[in-house]
Design a protein around this nucleic acid. Sequence first.
RNA 1: GGGGACGUGGCGUAGCUGGCUUAACGCAUCAGAUUGUCGAUCUGAGGAUCGCGGGUUCGAAUCCCGUCGUCCCCGCCA
Length: 586
Amino acid sequence: MLRTHTCGELNAKQIAKEVSLAGWVHKRRDHGEIIFIDVRDAYGVTQLVFDPKENRQMHKKAHELKSEYVIRAKGVVRKRPDGTVNTKIPTGEVEILVSALLILNPSETPPFEIDDSIAVSDEMRLKYRYIDLRRPRMQKNMRLRHKTNTSIRNFLEKRNFVEIETPFLTRSTPEGARDYLVPSRLNIGKFYALPQSPQLFKQILMVSGFDRYFQIARCFRDEDLRKDRQPEFTQLDLEMSFVDENDIFALSEGLMKAIFKEVSGIDIPTPFTRLMYHEAMERFGTDKPDARFGMELANLSEVLKNTKFNVFKKTLEKEGSIYAINAKGYAKISRSKLDGFIAKAKDLGAMGLAYFKCENAKLSSNIDKFFEKNELDSIKNKTRAEENDLVLIVADKKSIAQSVLGSMRLEIAAESGIIDDKKINFFWITDFPLFKYNEEEKRWESEHHPFTACKEEDIKLLDGKNLEKIHARSYDLVINGQEIASGSIRIHKRDFQEKIFKTIGIGVAEAKKRFGFLIEAFKYGAPPHGGIAFGLDRFVTIFTKSSTIRDVIAFPKTQKAIGLMTGAPSDVDDKQLKELHIKKVK
RNA sequence: GGGGACGUGGCGUAGCUGGCUUAACGCAUCAGAUUGUCGAUCUGAGGAUCGCGGGUUCGAAUCCCGUCGUCCCCGCCA
């Protein structure tokens, strides 16, 4: 046995005991005579003492130890002399007087120090990920992630869920995100795809009678990366039979409550607030609202319906809308900063950005002369503008006005520091539109995915022209403005599923080709079912208060989807390509 | 596909409106000193031709063009 204890557990209780510790040389403080060496493992740091008066041979040997050497030290635990207790670490009361020392493995000087306070570029951290992962913060993140997984499994286990693995090598279904493709050697010219999600398989499992399924599943999407998007990521995927929305909400809320309690010790109130999609857009300008702060959108279309200001007037005539937000305390910003806001609004797609400063108890602006007093009062009331506030107004197509101000609301809030990061804000967003119109391809497509059921009362609209008015039985869970989970009650009837495919331009033949197995399965007694999938990485990112998903993934990829440590993707041997009948490009 | 930021010893940065730069600072490293430190301290040393390629210039880390890499954002992500 190399160690009797970890480097994080010794305290006054073990005084006078002989122990063995194993770990990495963390720090060395050499006073000429006495030498202190901190030995570190995943659990903490313990001080080793080498005192020549006690053991001259060990003191000599201590000089061989360098940074990150792997060592094993045997010795007696003793109380530190009065006044030398280190209260910053749990083991600070004691130290080991070393009597035997073994170097298990020397180490080169690491490219950066194993210390949370040392700044290291992302590039370095990813290249030397094994060093980076030694840092306490990353150790903590990975362990917290594990704890989250454990908590999930315990919770679902108690509620009769079965964890079932579904294939990684599956069929490409080009609807949605780009697939990662894998050439098949045994079937020349054919490809597997890595799953974007286990969606189809979990629905099939419902047909198979596994009425409560879950999987902590890796998903793959060949799309561009962001700080919260990696090409492979993990979902907690679950599906239940014989349920409706309320069952999914109740289960999810219980799960969230349990995880937050077990992992962070935080009690979160349930049930979560439910917000219909159109209401979220109206109040926050986004379908993933962050209500940790106010600054909600105000709809000015009604109070300005008789406006003489030409820009606004024309917008309203074209069925557009006028929305505003109140940037609290922003009336005194510089002209250039205001110009920056205007430029930003245009970047986001707005035609322009109007503003009113609230100063000396009234709204003033370069355009205030176009407005009647009662209109200005209404704007002030609607936006609750007070002294020194700045009202920002966008008049445009409704969706643009909402989304532009939604974005600006977030930016201004982040910049002004009004977001309380101790708050945790949950929302269920419901009643999404079932379809959205793709302007480029001139066709309707699914907002969520084509297996989503719609509200009973909207079914009749499927045969009409106003497809955007159909409400889906889908829902998102939003935490602090981040989409954390997404799900729906699914279609379980074959004819209805085919009708949906037809509506989004997938003909019977094509549907059969792509999703034939699902439609086929529905012939044989598919139960009503629904589910949800949680983005586990994003979830853990919130727990660990990390700024990027990369900090909770052990081996993430760079923005160009490169594994800096492994060098993936790489060239492969001609022999490998030949076997796959793939010709080399270049 | 597009926009932006950055790239200087092992690491993090300063310098970058061209010339007192023989490229500076902190950390790390190495050597010496030091019996109670724990971000140890003190003294000293080594280490970068400034991502790469080209151009402008008497002179380029500094200006221009290209290129590579990392990050952020838009598009994209059913």
